[in-house]
């Protein structure tokens, strides 16, 4: 596998931007801005899949790119706008579980941790593109999970969840470039369904409780 160095360099750049969008989702206050960052992140995932598809000469990766662009940059934002009330998008989170500087500090720790987790795998099996995509994908995954923990609004929590999924696929395109087509299609169905289910749940919570600050729901617990 002798991939042109230009593709490698471009993928590294894509990966860096991909990670930046993940950090952005942690740090943004505006709900709408989180959504836009997610769309950007999905576009970068698409770009990485195309670059790897060119390098590995894999049709599967072009399929992944097509599916990602269709579902994550078009279908999901549309679904979310349809299901969740417009006023939710204008919400600005004043209260967070952690303030932004502390969040960013933890973000840095998580990124280092992602490299620690990924390095034994990379040492065991040498795949050039995995050197970029695996640790960055895992980092984006950790950051998405962290987003879910610190955000209180429903839509940013959902976007955190989808960012975790993006991270897994970002790693996935490098480590399994020939994923069976059936799995691609299934993933293409799964992700919009997640968005739809969570979006509809958000709408019901909004209708029933008048708020989407799901982080404050805490009536169920042991005293």
């Amino acid at each position: 596998m002798n991939s042109p160095p230009i593709l490698f360099a471009l993928d590294a750049l894509t990966g860096a931007l991909f990670l930046l969008t993940a950090i952005g989702v942690v740090a943004t206050r505006q709900v709408l801005a989180s959504l836009q960052l997610f769309i950007l992140q999905s576009a970068l995932l698409t770009l990485s899949a195309i670059l790897l598809g060119l390098a590995e000469d894999s049709v599967h990766l072009f399929a992944v790119a097509a599916i990602t662009i269709a579902t994550k940059t078009l279908l999901i934002p549309w679904l979310l706008r349809r299901t969740v009330n417009a006023e939710v998008y204008r919400t600005r989170e004043i209260e967070r579980v952690l303030n932004i500087p502390s969040s960013l500090l933890i973000t840095a720790v998580l990124i280092v941790l992602a490299y620690v987790v990924a390095s034994p795998l990379l040492n065991a099996v040498g795949v050039p593109f995995a050197q970029i995509n695996l640790p960055l994908g895992i980092a984006a995954m950790f950051l998405g999970a962290f987003t879910i923990a610190v955000r209180r609004e429903a839509v940013p929590q959902l976007l955190g969840l989808l960012a975790v999924e993006n991270g897994v696929f970002f790693a996935g395109v490098a480590i399994v470039p020939n994923l069976p087509v059936i799995a691609e299609l299934a993933a293409a169905v799964d992700v919009p369904v997640v968005a739809l289910v969570v979006g509809m749940l958000t709408r019901r919570i909004h209708a029933r409780l008048g708020t989407t600050a799901v982080g404050q729901l805490a009536s169920l617990r042991e005293e």
Partner: peptide, 11 residues
Amino acid sequence: EALEAAWKYVV
């Protein structure tokens, strides 16, 4: 309560 439970469950 049921909606809160459903939210935690899904996420």
